[in-house]
Structures are given as structure tokens and as C-alpha cells.
Computed example of a mutant assay.
Amino acid sequence: MKRNTTPVYYGDYLQLDKILGAQSLQSKHYGDPAHDEMLFIIVHQVYELWFKQILHELNAVISVFNQRQIPDQSLIEVVHRLQRINQIQQLLNDQISVMETMTPQQFLSFRDYLVPASGFQSIQFKRLEISLGLKREFRIDFDKQSFYNRLSQDDRELLEALESKPSLFELVEQWLARMPLLIKDEFAFWQHYKQAADASLQADRKIILSNDTLTAKEQQQELNDLTATEENFAALFDKTAYQKLNDEGTFRLGHEAMMALLFIKQYPEEPIFNLPFQLITALTDIDEKLTIWRYRHAMMVQRMLGTKIGTGGSSGHHYLKKTTESNRIFTDFFNAASFLLPKDMLPALPNSVKQYFGFYK
């Protein structure tokens, strides 16, 4: 590695003159500048800088998954980059506490000068959502209608082009579906798994029926919930039934991908599944952190504006609260826990299979 031949000066390298000179208060055009507008600008500028880094990491991950074959060495780097994204998200969530040091009246001292600017117009955040897998068809109705309304023509064209490219969700789904590990030699895992699952569900039904602390209404509700879980379990072993639930939105992952996901999550300690399990965990963490960010953002907006509309014309807190649960991406990774069984109920892997999963003969 060569050393630099030209001296580098700290401020020049970071272009601090541009960064530190980029805080122009809108309130100063209408009278005395609002003191807290500086905080508002800097917090959002920092968000955008971190969004840029997240996109930098995310695009590298997508490039790896856009290949037909993914070497283990590449998967190690992917997991590392996803974990870095997760740590950045933690910073973004913590940053809301800094914003909340501003009182509602301090925010109102400059808020009306920002109309019609809105977080809707953060192109980097929209790129992040689309790249992860939150494309237009998966958004709540209000979000579908307003997604492009407040954007410039160039920004609309950029995002529409991105919508046509495979997202990380789609690429990971294809990767899971390609895993050839569901049947090895004469060991049919799913036949054994179904027997164990049926036994587990029957035990759950007995617990509900014998629970004297439940009222009749509570017992019926728990039985209804169990019946729904049983139907979802049954669909795992019936591709037609699974496809129906997939079409209805109960599942987003295709059948092959879901089965591979469950296999990995059931046996994460097997060496061959260690990196895939870390990958699944990292994506689950990213979706969780994104959901927490949406929730905290919604609570902050309610704290600042109550039921007032947002600066961009949205319904403010009400809209943000709806997106918290609705605009999820890797929900199937969370809900897969519904199908996991205790270790002592899982079918034992034959030695030939364990040797195959352990990379030795």
C-alpha cells in the first residue's frame, strides 16, 4: 500500500467548510432567527448522512445477492455490512431523544416557515425502503397515493426506476428458495417435522381446554387463535393452501423460501447454517429497528404537533402511526417463530445428515 505524497489537511479532507456552512435558517427571512431551528436542521442533515452510508452498505449487499451463486466468503462480508447498518440504525433511533429536547412551542416558532417541505421528500429514505423491499404495492393505501405526489420529476423517475429492480427481500427470497438442503439421502425432514408439530399443537389445545382461569369468552378466543395457527401450519405441507395464504398476504415469502427459512431457524447450530442464520437475524434486526424508528418518530410528532397536520399536508401523527406496523418488510422472519418447535421435539438428524451439515465426512 502506497503512502500519500501530498499532505492532507483535516478540514479540507472532510470539506468542513461546506458541511458547517450548510445550515441556513429559514426563520431569519421573517424576523429574528428561531434558536431551535439550528438543531432541527442539523438532526435532519445527520439523518441524511447516515442514510447515505446505509445505502452504500445496502447496495454492496444487493450486488452480492444479485449473483447466481454466493460464496461463503461473500456471505461473511454481507453479514458484517448488515450488522453495521443495524448499529447505524441504533444511532438514528437514539437521535430522536436529541430532537425531543425541543419543546412544541420552540418547534412552532419556525414550523410554518417550512411548508410544504416534508420528510416525504427524503429521497434517500425512500431509496432505502424500496431497496430493502418496501415497494409501492406493499404500502398502505394512503402511502401508495401520496408516495410520489410531493416529489420533483427527476426524483419520481429515479424512484420508479428503482422499483423495477430486484430488492434485497426478493433476492434473499430467491437465495433461500435455491437451498438444496430440505431432503438429504433418505431423510425427509418435513415428514418428521409435521408429526412433531401436530403433537405440539394438540398439547396446546389441551392446555387451553384445561385452563380453569379463562372465561368462556377468553377460552374461545384462544381456541380461535390456535385454529388459525393450525391452518397456517397445515399450509406449510400443502403448496396450494400456502399459495392461497400467500395471495391473501398472510405470507410474503414463497413456499420454498419459507421452508428453507424454517429449516435454518430450527438448526442454527449446524455449521452450514451458521452464516445463513446470522443473515436472517441481521435482516430481522434491521426491520425491527426501522419499525422502532417509525414508532418513535410518530410519538415525537404527536408530542410536537398533537393532531395537527404535518408540514407536507399529511395527517401527521395518525399517518406515521399507521405506517409503523403496515410498512414492514421482513415480517415473515418474525412470524416464523410461530412454527418453531422446542429442541426436544425436533426430529434428530441422522449422522449422515449431521456430517453433511458439518462440512466433514
Rank of each mutant, 00 (worst) to 15 (best):
T213D: 15
R111Y: 09
R3Q: 14
V61R: 02
R3H: 13
A257V: 03
L223T: 03
D112P: 01
N246F: 05
Q26C: 11
N149D: 14
M259A: 09
Q67D: 13
E222I: 03
F359V: 04
D247K: 13
Q121E: 11
T6V: 15
L49E: 11
H80T: 10
L341T: 10
H35K: 11
P347M: 07
Q73N: 09
S118D: 12
G31V: 01
H318W: 06
Q45W: 10
E48M: 12
Q153R: 14
Q90M: 00
Q45E: 12
H35Q: 14
E288G: 06
W293T: 03
K165S: 14
L39A: 10
A177G: 05
Q202P: 05
Q95T: 07
I70V: 15
A337T: 09
H255C: 10
F187V: 05
Q26G: 05
W50H: 12
I19A: 15
Q23C: 13
F330L: 08
A34P: 05
F110Q: 01
N149R: 15
T229H: 15
L16I: 01
L132R: 01
Y319V: 05
T284L: 08
H297K: 10
D185N: 15
T291S: 15
R127N: 07
P180M: 10
L182H: 10
A235E: 02
N211Y: 07
D12Q: 13
E100I: 05
D212E: 14
I41L: 12
I292N: 00
N335Y: 11
S315H: 08
A196D: 06
N246I: 00
K343R: 12
F142E: 15
M258E: 04
Y319P: 01
H80Y: 07
R68N: 14
M345N: 09
Y319C: 07
R3T: 13
Y267I: 03
Q219G: 07
I41H: 08
I183K: 13
E231P: 05
M99G: 08
L171C: 06
V301T: 04
L279M: 08
N246W: 03
F330M: 02
F359E: 02
Q145V: 11
Q89I: 03
Y148N: 02
N246H: 12
I286V: 10
L82H: 05
Q121K: 11
L290E: 04
I70H: 09
V172W: 01
G119V: 00
K28G: 06
F263T: 06
I88D: 05
M179T: 07
V46E: 03
Y295M: 14
M179P: 05
Y295E: 09
Q302N: 14
H318S: 13
N246Q: 13
L176F: 02
S152N: 11
Q153M: 14
F277G: 02
I292K: 02
A337K: 06
E173A: 09
S146G: 03
L171T: 00
Q69L: 13
Q45V: 10
T331S: 13
D332Y: 09
S326E: 13
Y356S: 08
L236N: 05
S200M: 06
D112Y: 05
K2H: 13
D155F: 06
D17K: 08
K144F: 10
Q153G: 07
E186A: 12
I19T: 10
Y113M: 10
V301W: 00
